[in-house]
Amino acid sequence: MGKKIHFFNTILFKISGTLLELQQVFMKSNPRTYIISKKLDGFFSDVYAIMSFIGKFFRELGPPYEWREIIRQCYMVGWKSLPLISVTSFVVGIVFTKQSRPSLSEFGATSWLPSLVAIAIFRALAPLVTALIAAGKVGSNIGAELGSMRVTEQIDAMEVSATNPFKFLVVSRVLATSCMLPILMFYMAFISMIGAYLNILVNEDTSFSAFFIKALEKITFLDFFSSLIKTIVFGFSIGIIGCYQGYNATQGTQGVGRAANFAVVTSMFVVFIEEIIAVQITSWFR
């Protein structure tokens, strides 16, 4: 993995170098092209930097592990997100069921409601909503925490005390988000289904077990597996982007705010892109 990233980075470095040469050519002759070239160079430099950061993550992934910090981060990411995830998922379940009922009842197909809700929740809503909540709550937290550690020289202090701050701060957080997001996703799916059941119960008399049997009969192993892989990727992206922004924060408290903000915005953007790719890939296997 590290070698592939290194190869990719070499290409990016060459593109950036070529753009830099082009900039010098266009600087005088064509100012507009110069500005575009400069922006493109900035973009490729950023991609290069984040790819190097990811490469470093995989190089540092081996033992010894900072178990205590990993467990602490799992607690922060997982347990501390439960109240927000619980409320949101319950509401998502109720609202989605309530909004879907009129359309299905037009065709006399309200009996399909549990399956429809289950498919929507397992395939798309639970992974995506969990990831968006995590991007907002966990991503900003990681960005701000590491950013403030950077500007108050705490990361430098770890470096000069002959320890590895990357392993302690970055690897532990990215592992925590990658491990906890799938768990949160399944928890969210379960709570959403309870919300959906309660909404159905208001309109028709159905038992909890009957609802769940009906709901899960359309859920395949592929749905389960693709959502699991997807949320691991979402968790990794949120963790690595938050850490990258925080770890490279500059310019004092303003930089901390910017790191937290960029962590959220970039994570959400990347999650949406990954969702589109994941849907495309999964559809090939259906």
Partner: peptide, 11 residues
């Protein structure tokens, strides 16, 4: 040993 201006203790 490096003593930082801000002390840089881990919060």
């Amino acid at each position: 040993g490096f003593s930082f201006q801000s002390s840089a203790l881990y919060d």
